[in-house]
Amino acid sequence: MSFSTTTGSTSTDTSSLRAYGWDDAWAADFAPYAAQGLLPGRVVRVDRGQCDLVTPEGLVRADTAFVTPHDPLRVICTGDWAAVDPEGAGDPRYVRACLPRRTAFARSTSSKRSEGQILAANVDHAIITVSLAVELDLGRIERFLALAWESGAQPLVVLSKADLVPDPVGLSYLVEDVETVAPGVQVLPVSSHTGEGLDVLRAVAGGGTSVLLGVSGAGKSTLANSLLGADVMDVQAARDVDGKGRHTTTTRNLLVLPGGGVLIDTPGLRGVGLWDAEAGVGQVFAEIEDLAAECRFHDCAHESEPGCAVTAAIADGSLPERRLDSYRKLLRENQRLVAKTDARVRAEILKDWKRKGAEGRAALDAKRGRVR
């Protein structure tokens, strides 16, 4: 397998980038920039208009002024592959372009402007870290899973601090609870203290680029240190009262694992807002969408319609009502966000509101014996 890149009239040896995920497909995408004399590099950290990239010349810092579009989802981020000025091109060196992303993990920001925020790019595995030191929040896990599926990465739910649940039966029940909200996703109890589950996690992380996701105090930095085999990431204890921790990771960092693979550690996420994640929501609630396909009416709202397979499943106990409530909540949230930037969706929502209002008035008139 060849990993050299022709730069102008010379050939640049890119074999050092293999550990960071460089392959022939990336080399092909980079070819037009190689012809311009630029170097390939993977972004390992972004910080206030500059970024650190690993290149065939080693670790370099470059200015991102040429790759700062108005769309916040297109700004350069950790995990991107980019074209950067070679040594001697000037000071500062600049990132000239980003290669098309294979996957992108994005969420909505907490601002009132309803903007998306890109968290990591070109990720193969989204490792959703959930602490067993506190009560499980299944709704939050569903949110993370929706974003992970939407990104194009394969999710994995890691139940960290498994040593805090000494009862094997109790631990198995917790795993089963999470499995019910994570169809098609492996759920892995892990303890950095005892080593439980770490071999499996290393095997998964060794198969490409992985991103660690979770709230503050979930144990991401401790897991990162376990995978790296060294105390690279700072670790702080979570509060006993609620299991929450302070942000030990303040930036997104890309690190090479000793057994192969690349790890992106992210700061703890206080908010897990959806961003155009309808397909991801559908993947998380696949059993509901499968049932909906069996409803008598294709536009069934799963409320009181005759022949509704979803409400029938709730009635016979095969579908928990909490799942349907969560499904509706995430779909509504996602629709509201999309509507703020899509006039067509806004019009459809307004039309639906008017229809439901008319139906409500008709039902009230019929109850009171009025005829319009």
Rank of each mutant, 00 (worst) to 15 (best):
D299G: 04
E305L: 01
F297A: 04
R74G: 07
R322M: 05
T209V: 14
G90W: 06
A315Q: 12
C300D: 01
G271A: 10
C77N: 13
V185H: 02
G58I: 01
A182P: 02
V187N: 01
L228W: 02
T180R: 13
P100V: 07
R332A: 14
H70W: 13
T10M: 12
D52M: 05
D63I: 01
E115A: 13
A19W: 04
F285W: 00
P155H: 03
T249Y: 12
T14M: 11
A65F: 06
G152M: 06
G273C: 10
R355P: 15
E142V: 05
L164M: 04
L188K: 03
R101A: 07
T10N: 09
R239G: 08
S131D: 01
T222K: 05
V178E: 03
I314R: 04
R61A: 08
D199S: 11
V241M: 13
R252L: 14
L263H: 00
S172Y: 03
D52F: 10
T109V: 13
V84M: 08
L350M: 13
E294S: 03
S221A: 03
S216Q: 07
G271M: 07
M233S: 09
A237H: 11
E179S: 04
A19Q: 01
R202G: 01
L350T: 13
L171I: 00
L331F: 06
E294N: 11
A315K: 11
D365P: 04
C308G: 04
D29L: 11
T251A: 09
A347P: 14
S326F: 09
C77S: 15
C51N: 00
E278G: 14
I288H: 03
T7A: 14
